[in-house]
Amino acid sequence: MKLLPFLDRLAATPAATGNAAPRRALLQQAGRAALAALPLALGTTQPVAARTQTTAYDAITQLLQLERLQMTYYSRALTTSGLIPAAQVADFQRLYDQQLQHVALLQNTLQTAGALVPAVPAFDFSGRKNVATNPVLFPNVLSNYDDFLALAQQLEDFSVRLYTTYAFINPDDAQFAKVLLRMLAVEGEHSAHVRGLRRDRGVAVKTWPSSSDAPIVRPAAAQALAAAATAGEDNLTQLASAGVPIVFSDFLNVFKFTSVPDASLAEAFDEPVVDVDTTKKRTPQVIAQAALDLFS
């Protein structure tokens, strides 16, 4: 197997010196997180403080679980005879291949850091969590092509937002940020393509999340997915720094328009995972985990 360039860089990191290279900072953090997880797992009497800080380890493991989810989804779809039309099999093979590479990259990052690699969940795309008596939250996603595409779109949008959330979680590590940014762009391309496939089948949906997209109707128990995938995409305010919005006032020279409609302003920026209910103070990590938990 050919080594990933990313791993080459990891390997090239010199052995311990007094200077914390950015790579090392991540690895140490990941290692600490792995150790820190132990007493919790053993159920010690220490009070479990509310976690407010999402670490790089948290970010990588959550991204890994989402990539595994997507990879498994495409894998099962590709092996389900007759689900994906012949003309689109190559498209989904590419999606599968690239998600597989992302899984390998994130998993190797954890392994190289000596951190715990979480177990692969037993994914259940029906939303029944492997319990036959639970209600089905995502009907027909592996038997009806349109239902399959709708869930694929939500997972790709979710993935764009989770990478946006975590791309710069370790701001001292420019190389790692670059790798996450490059995976983010790939997820954006995937989402755009899946959205295009749905549009070709008559669904009113744009290449980017838009307020004009036809809603994907799910039962209340499945709303955690929409919360992670698209909630807050209608945001119109971009901040230059904490609390300081950028003023978009100079739109007069756009073709024919004397002002840019709000829809375009929201569409021009993808958003990270956000909690639209600000009263609950849930972190993006919590919102994202609730969505992941629907599938295992």
């Binding site: 946006t164 954006g188 755009a192 290449t207 993808d270 958003e271």
Partner: peptide, 22 residues
Amino acid sequence: KSPAYLLLAGKIVSVEARHAAY
């Protein structure tokens, strides 16, 4: 280096990626 600009770079790159894919 600025966290706010880093986040915005992430918000824009995926939109450009969507354009590119289209």
